[in-house]
Structures are given as C-alpha cells and as structure tokens.
Design a binder for these strands. Structure first.
Lengths: 176, 176
DNA sequence: TATTGTTATACTCTATAACTATA
DNA sequence: TATAGTTATAGAGTATAACAATA
C-alpha cells in the first residue's frame, strides 16, 4: 500500500522542447497547484494520505489498522466508555462504529457490556488480549510520526499539533 | 452529510454518580485521548474529517465534490497535463483517476487528447464549461477554510499551511 | 521489456434510512 | 416521543492484479 512516488510541485518553469505543441507544455511532473497551495483543506488531505502511507509501511506485516488501533487505544484510556460517546469523539458514524466494534469483539480485543441503568446502550472495555495488543504496538504507533521521521523539528512538530488541535476542537461557527 | 456533533476532549474529571459501577465512570462525553493527542497522524485525521464536513456544508445543493474540483482546478492551471502526472501530483491511484476523469468528461468539464508523440498517454484540458465551472466556484472554494472560518488568526493559518506544505513535500526517508 | 492507462475485483469508510429495544 | 444501537444498501476512495496498446 505504500506509494513511493516522486512528487514535485511549483516552479512554473517551461521547457522549450515542443514549441508547437497543442498545449504550453510544462516540465513533466512539475505541476502548478495555484490556489490549492493556500487551501487548508487540500493540504490536510495531502498530508493525511502521506501519514496513512507511512502508517501502513510501519505496520506492514501486522493486522494493525489506524481506525481499529485508535478505538482500542481510546477504550483502553476510558474503560466502560459508551459506544456512542466513542463514535462522537472519534467522528465515526454509529453504523460504522457498530461494524468496527463487531470486528474487534470477534478478534477478541474488545468486550461489550449492556449496563443495567440503560439497557439500550453498550459499554466497551478491552479484554486482556486487547490490552496486550495496545501495549505491544504502542511504541511503534507513537514513533510513526515522530518529528524527525516527518522532517520537522521538535518545535515545528509541537506547533503543528497545537494548531491542529485548535482546529479540531473549535466549535464550528456554522453549527449551532 | 454535515455532522454537528458536540465533541469535547480531555479534562479527566470523574463524576461520583455511580460509585459502584463496574467501571470508573467518566463524565459522559468527556473522553480522554491520551497519547493520541501527540499523534500527528491522528490529529490530521480529525481535522481532515472536519474540513470535509465544512466543505460539504458550504457546497450543499451543488454537485461540487472536493476531489473533482481539485482535479479541474489543477488541470485548469496546467492545460495539457498528462493524466499520470495529475494522479501522482494529487496522490490519487491511476485506476481511480481513470474513473474520476471519465465522470468529468461525461459531465462535459474535461476533454482528453491522445498526443501523437506518445499514444499511450492522455493529456487533459478543461472544456469551456469546465473553465466556467471552476470560475463559478473558485471564490467559495477558497473561502471554505479562510482563517476566521476555522478559528485561527491569519498568522496561525499561514504557519499551519507552511508546516503542512513542508510535511507534504518532504521526501520520505524510508522511500528510496 | 517497461510504461500509460484501463478494467475488474474487493475492501474500507461514509451516508442514509428503516428498524429494535429500550427509555 | 426520543434515544442507543443495529441492519441494510449504496456510494466514494483505495489497493491490487491482470490486461491492451504503445514505446
């Protein structure tokens, strides 16, 4: 799943190699992004796909996937968490969360409890195997995006995290 | 598609409302994220899903989608771009790019040209309708993530963009 | 042989609505 | 009537491999 493509953006240099080409030919692989360079949404998408690539490269050969590991990690931090709270926190739709949880229960990592005080709801906790799984991969999970791995200084990394956090937990002005 | 969920993280306050509950109950909806708070990959995912929500809210009622608009925008900036270059630049897999392009050709926004100098390849350009489409939605596309919309100052926004760009265009040390 | 793009298949994530069982 | 979760279905994105045409 990795994709070690060489990319390169910017630098509007033209080559003269095809003067009468039907298009003003640019240097192949040198692509002008224009206004996209100023779009937070676009840049988030670009960086996120890179982060995914790096994750799958680091966890190649294991059955660890980002969504599942995140769920296990959060349940581990919050034993007895309600499935709905988990879904809202991680911005995962209830229908999808149901399937995710079913998979993790089947894998033996999660256990579900229907609490007597509200028998509609489901509380989640790690099994022993689930806790072991989280522990086993914890260090690797944290190292995936260590600053030096991704080409940032520690200070830049801290700034980036702070800005992303601010973005992520801001209430949306359009959302009443 | 929006999801105006209230989220809240952090603050490990416990409520005492169920002393003998099977789990150390936390305040509902107050979820501890632990190490995930330091994970760039996790935070990128959280912010990107928010950015998507905001995009679809702003473009509700139109047929504009982020991936398609990005493709049209980039082709507009680079007329005659080869389909493969476009795919590599935007980190989109060739198989997916084929379908994206087919859809945009069918919508009348893109035209394909097989150049005589390499008849395996395909060069892309906007049709008049495609250019009009890009122009019509350009301002809105840029406004989706304007600093004030997302709760950052202009300076923070610039810093964030610079860091994301650095992240995005860094060669991966693991990728030879 | 290698490259460009296409087709086909499958799996993940997402969106939506209809459903159940509780409250 | 509202809420928590489930089921079912569909769509979009992605990964992979096999393929055609061309280089």
């Amino acid at each position: 799943m990795p994709s070690c493509r060489k990319r390169q953006a910017r630098s509007p240099t033209r080559t003269g190699e095809a003067m009468n080409a039907p298009f003003p030919l640019t240097d192949e692989e040198t692509v002008e992004l224009g206004a996209l360079n100023e779009s937070v949404g676009f840049m988030l998408r670009m960086t996120q796909t890179r982060a995914y690539d790096q994750f799958f490269r680091d966890f190649a050969g294991t059955d660890v996937r980002p969504g599942e590991y995140t769920v296990l990690q959060v349940v581990g931090m919050n034993p007895g968490l309600k499935q709905g709270s988990l879904a809202r926190t991680l911005n995962i739709k209830p229908a999808h969360m149901t399937k995710l949880v079913q998979r993790l229960v089947r894998a033996g990592y999660l256990k579900r409890t229907v609490p007597p005080e509200d028998r509609r709801s489901v509380r989640l906790a790690l099994t022993q195997a689930g806790q072991a799984h989280v522990d086993r991969h914890h260090a690797r999970f944290l190292s995936v995006h260590r600053a030096e791995r991704i080409g940032l200084t520690d200070a830049e990394n801290a700034t980036l995290l702070a800005l992303l956090k601010k973005l992520s937990f801001n209430e949306d002005p359009e959302c009443p």
